[in-house]
């Protein structure tokens, strides 16, 4: 047990990293925020709207953790509620209607775990996003910029391309949760982090992501410019793909397939 994976978890969670809105502000131009799920509310943990990338319009959706203590509380520490996922889906459907691609920035320890979230159908909200995103007729790129916490992260990551920052993590469960369930001891979190294979390199070798974004100059102008350039190039290519939706189906269809054994 090297503990290296758990160090990544700590970096991914650490304060001082750029959050969702920093990416929107620094990569795109003229962001117009659009609020509300048209059902019951507006979730501050998810920010979405329209902006320009190069000269072309895109729909941008980001989970926002906030920087200051007050902002973090106001944004529920980046734990979205059902209305956040429904707002995101509404904006994606809008993007589909008007033929513009979707870019998502994912950073959450997980979907909100509260009585209210259950009452308003957290499971249903995530499920609907998974289903609807699988056939959205415009390109989707999702970038994990910090924590990729389970279903709450996946609900914005059923995409044609999924990229991860070098120090982002993506996992089915938190290392603490895993350790406490398996070994009844949350101090075993470092060992659990190693076992869960949650680093960007692990995710890439499992075929879950396409690209790891270096972050040695994180937060600098060149850093954002580089991501912007990559997004532009990739979105252009995806926009020209006549088999976009079929390709997205196949992308997820093959995950886990060769790991299943068939014994007579």
């Amino acid at each position: 047990m090297s503990g290296a994976a758990y160090d990544r978890v700590k970096i991914a969670r650490g304060g001082g990293r750029p959050t969702g809105r920093d990416y929107i502000k620094n990569i795109f131009r003229g962001f117009i925020e659009l609020h509300g799920d048209r059902r019951c509310g507006d979730d501050p943990a998810i920010v979405g709207g329209i902006a320009r990338l190069g000269g072309s319009p895109v729909t941008v959706i980001a989970i926002e953790k906030g920087h200051t203590a007050a902002e973090r509380v106001a944004r529920n520490f980046g734990a979205p509620n059902p209305e956040g996922y429904r707002k995101a889906l509404r904006l994606m459907k809008q993007a589909e209607k008007f033929g513009r691609p979707v870019v998502c920035f994912v950073d959450t320890s997980g979907a909100s775990c509260t009585i209210g979230a259950e009452e308003r159908g957290q499971g249903q909200a995530i499920a609907e996003n998974l289903m609807e995103m699988s056939t959205l007729c415009v390109p989707i790129i999702s970038i994990l910029i910090g924590e990729g916490g389970s279903g709450g992260a996946l609900a914005l990551a059923v995409a044609d391309r999924v990229w991860m920052l070098q120090n982002a993590v993506y996992s089915v469960i938190s290392p603490e949760g895993c350790a406490s369930i398996l070994w009844k001891d949350s101090s075993m979190a470092a060992a659990a982090a190693d076992s869960l294979k949650l680093t960007a390199e692990d995710a890439k070798s499992l075929g879950v992501i396409e690209r790891i974004l270096p972050e040695s100059d994180i937060g600098q102008k060149e850093y954002y410019d580089r991501i912007g350039t990559l997004l532009m190039r990739e979105l252009k290519e995806l926009s020209a793909d006549p088999d976009l939706v079929a390709g997205r189906y196949d992308r997820f269809r093959r995950i886990g397939r060769k790991q299943v054994k068939e014994k007579p």
Binding site: L130, S134, S150, G151, L154, A157, V158, Y170, S171, V172, S195, L196, K197, L198, D202, A203, L206, V208, F252, R253, I255, G256, Q259
Partner: peptide
């Protein structure tokens, strides 16, 4: 099965 399990939800 870590992330592979998570991805089954999408699949």
């Amino acid at each position: 099965e870590g992330l592979l399990s998570l991805m089954q939800m999408a699949k």
